[in-house]
Amino acid sequence: MVAVRASLEDMTSSPADQPGATDTTDAKIAAYAHPERLVTTDWLAAQIAAGATGPGTGIVILESDEDVLLYETGHIPTSLKLDWHQDLNDPLTRDYVGAEQFARLMTARGISRDTTVVVYGDKSNWWAAYALWVMSLFGHPDVRLLDGGRAKWVAEGREMTREVPSVPAGGDDAAYPLSARDDAPIRAFKDDVLAHLGKPLVDVRSPGEYSGELLHMPDYPQEGAVRGGHIPGAKSVPWARAAAEDGTFKPRAELEAIYLTEQGLSPDEDVVAYCRIGERSSHTWFVLTHLLGFDNVRNYDGSWTEWGNAVRVPIEK
């Protein structure tokens, strides 16, 4: 656990020294445990206007959506696409890419180890949070979310483009260094969850999935399971409770009222979050870790598509 805290502090203490300094323009963001993990649309627009963003610069903007074609219909100027399925998943094994492939993905987007990466996406940043979490597995020091994601940017009538920025051809110096993936601090596997039973678990799926009435998420029947219910002892806190109407994160006090007061979670406890394939729980992982300052939250990405299909694991209804 000591190692976990140390690595999280390394990850969260450096951004102020990075080219993209922390967004201090917003009182709501300043109140979070790690305000350097979130930026406002105003802040991002100002960075773009100043020419401070784009491949090879200090700030690289990535769009990560559920819909693989949404980026092509128009995106935030200077941004590039990072697709959760095509880019971040290993094509054969149900796992994420390894260090070499990750380095190639980053290099191809003009990202170096000291680049400030701002991720945004559709669906209240589900997939953006997922991409941020995967980048955190590789210990990328400074990766942030755009509060409100794609929908807020569009709703505010801000500029969108179909122009894809070119990535400067760098030499070997420009290549992203091989960085080992370190799963243990923030990722839980099925055996980890079995060993964790009795400690806090957060089920972020819809109430119908939690109760076992639904074997899949509404409108996602292809990601079903043969058993319904939830992992024993898990608390039901649908991910969307952390999001406001406009897709931004709720203010810290409101989040504390949900996760601390109502659910009785404590920032010094070990917590595991899960959903169906790990993307909605990445959103909750982000909330607990970066907005509320929990020290040890792991995302169980196997989630219900693994647990609800696994043989002889305990299930509660």
Binding site: D67, V68, L69, L70, E72, T73, D122
Partner: peptide, 9 residues
């Protein structure tokens, strides 16, 4: 909807 371009495609 337009925000589902893959499905529309």
């Amino acid at each position: 909807p337009p925000e589902a371009p893959t499905t529309r495609g």
